[in-house]
Write a protein that binds this DNA or RNA. Structure first.
Lengths: 345, 345
DNA sequence: CGCTAAAGTGTAAACGTTTACAAAGACAGC
DNA sequence: GCTGTCTTTGTAAACGTTTACACTTTAGCG
């Protein structure tokens, strides 16, 4: 593992000073055409690759952005990272990726590591924005950051999100207007996700809007993949639900499976809708009716905004992107369709 | 954005030299208990965070590993990255993540950027290991790297993979022994994935093993999500297939949907099996019969091995992990079950 | 008390860049 | 030829750490 050549060796080989080599590389300052050639050759001959660590030390710019996500196992986050990476690359930045596994303690630790690495900014999703120590910590650091998926704490925070309450209310409202009167909800651990809470709030509002009495919400862990127990419970209730709303697509997919395992057909016997809009929900059969968050786009926008703040000193802003409903095949009118109590559809 | 405090300011505040502060931070060299206290306080008071860029310059160690994946949109890669991140974190390393979008040109460019960032090693999946310029490039760099998912080029390369040929042969062989005589295959773009080719080879071997004549393989792009056209084509063949093998789970899921859209029931009318073992395949209904690659584990092992090479000078090695079959619900005996020509099951 | 060894601390030189500043050369205008 | 301007190049000082080396203090021991 011979040491990598340095700018000094290139300079020696080209018979110029290191300053000149630096100028050739960065295209700053004036260099005669002849020298430029010579140096270019020397660079090629030595296989020189500028050491961005040395450069970063001098320029006080690392060229990296920190990224912190709860997990990459939920495709919604993987998609966001994909967008983040694309936009970062387009802007000439690299990303340092970490994940918290939904643990607030790890959030703080991971951010600390990123700050030691002198990331110029961060893009992150925290478990719960309202209680996050990680954000307090970050506020104090004066390193700009953009939250993705999380709701806004205050107006002077940069966030890229969708209106979770409105979206949940919208999709559940449609179930109501389809004629569903008993709509259950399975929500991911509210401790680990403020989104879960917001979606629950939207769900409850939709029930109220429809004049339905709230039903209890089943809270499960994020990694729950086997919901058959919970599905059985739901069916055992006196008037069982005719529809299920899940706080994430992963849960909804598991819910469909749970009901199918109990012999129900989707959507004939029960409707199931999700939230996130992960691609696989669209590919499966029945395709999942859900709220689509433009995750990749959100990641890109987050980075673009971050770079504006970094390079142009733009102010923080709250960016709420529009969500989309995917009219999948997993929902339908309830069999014993009764008109909703409110206004007819 | 006041400048971050440096070791010098901590030293001044604690009334000691920078060397002492450094010693306290790294626990190297001897420092009296009293000084240790004083310095610790000064660090806390100033909110000092060691600049790993400065450190890296001196120690010639960046503490980062480079990661290059084709895309994060396929959960199999996201899972691998998850494992990579976990193991890297456990080993005290950070990861610099890039993706190639399956484009060989971007592979080279991305690696170049990573090398400029002086990653101490790389974990990557290239489109095609046998033709990859990226790997030639990397070989010349003398930075250790580990391939994941790709097959081994030569014995002195580090790789972590499964036996794609054997696995494909295994699962397709089971279809044969179930009684399927006409098994179609949909494969992802072979240009963009050597895995696709290996799985195809395994598929063809299984057909030969079973005394079946090879049928043409349909090649599609990786981002193909609507396979209904291809499904229709398959059904239009004179004796249509009774089973479909797809080179990835994402394709298999789309295939299930394609057939379902044409009115077929899975697995009653046609069996569909995939390859990868992404989690969502297990959650959906019918659950996907597939070859499970331990992606997260593969990512972890890759990093563990890389760190062994880095820190203990261990030699490169080829690590072929066992695959697992998931006996999902998407396959069954063909309706018009005929015993296979070969040995009975 | 004097000697030696060990422990604690400081000094200063790296590491690979960038860049302010200085210097030198070329050239034009007088 | 002198002056001034512009272009090209070099010198050297940062940037924030680590660490070899040297120095001072302390402790142990005769």
């Amino acid at each position: 593992m011979g040491k990598a050549p340095t700018i000094r060796e290139v300079a020696r080989r080209a018979g110029v000073s290191v300053a000149t080599v630096s100028r050739v590389m960065n295209g700053r300052g004036s260099v005669s055409e002849k020298t430029r050639q010579t140096v270019g050759e020397a660079i090629r001959e030595t296989g020189f690759r500028p050491n961005v660590i040395g450069r970063g030390l001098k320029t006080a710019r690392s060229g990296t952005l920190g990224v912190l996500m709860p997990s990459l196992r939920n495709p919604i986050f993987a998609d966001a990272v994909q967008g983040i990476e694309r936009a970062a690359e387009a802007g000439g930045y690299r990303i340092l990726l970490t994940s918290s596994n939904y643990l607030p303690d790890k959030e703080v630790a991971a951010i600390d590591v990123l700050l030691c690495n002198r990331v110029e900014g961060l893009v992150l999703t925290v478990a719960d924005e309202s209680t996050s120590q990680a954000l307090d910590f970050l506020d104090r650091s004066h390193v700009p950051f953009v939250l993705v998926f999380n709701p806004a704490r205050t107006a002077d925070h940069s966030i890229v999100t969708i209106d979770n309450v409105a979206a949940a209310r919208d999709i559940v409202g449609r179930l109501v207007r389809m004629g569903h009167r008993r709509i259950a909800m399975i929500a991911g651990d509210s401790q680990a996700s403020d989104r879960s809470n917001l979606r629950r709030a939207g769900y409850e509002q939709a029930l109220v809007d429809g004049g339905l009495r709230p039903s209890p919400v089943i809270e499960v862990g994020f990694d729950s993949r086997d919901l058959v127990r919970h599905c059985r419970f739901l069916l055992s209730c006196d008037p069982g639900p005719t529809a299920l709303f899940c706080s994430t697509d992963m849960l909804a997919i598991a819910g469909i499976r749970g009901f199918a395992a109990l012999g129900l057909r989707i959507p004939d016997d029960i409707s199931v809708v999700g939230f996130d809009g992960i691609e696989v929900g669209e590919c499966m059969s029945p395709s999942l009716a859900t709220v689509v968050q433009p995750a990749e786009d959100m990641g890109m926008r987050a980075v673009e905004h971050l770079l504006e703040r970094l390079n142009a000193g733009a102010p923080a802003k709250n960016l709420t992107l529009p969500y989309r409903l995917r009219h999948g095949e997993s929902w339908a009118k309830p069999r014993e369709a009764t008109a909703p109590t409110g206004t007819p559809v």
